[in-house]
Amino acid sequence: MVQVVLSGIMKTAVDDQAEIEIEAKNIKQLLDALARDYPKMEPYVKKGLAVSINGVIYRDSLYQKIPEDAEIFVIPRLAGG
């Protein structure tokens, strides 16, 4: 299980929990579980999300491993100009 933190309105999509526990060994498993267990998260997952693991932001690496004790944040998918 990993502890996941979601900001603001995404927090309301997970029943207003500051942190949630999710069984996931990589980013894809994490996002799939979010969409599956919290249906209100599905639009966010569909729109695209980035995941911060211990301060390093991963945008596309779906199979990036998540260490057990990692700090996990889910944030909007980054873009730029």
């Binding site: 693991i53 690496s61 199979y63 491993k65 260490p67």
Partner: peptide, 9 residues
């Protein structure tokens, strides 16, 4: 090969 943990750091 498989992506290592924290490959970005």
């Amino acid at each position: 090969g498989e992506a290592p943990e924290s490959k970005g750091t």
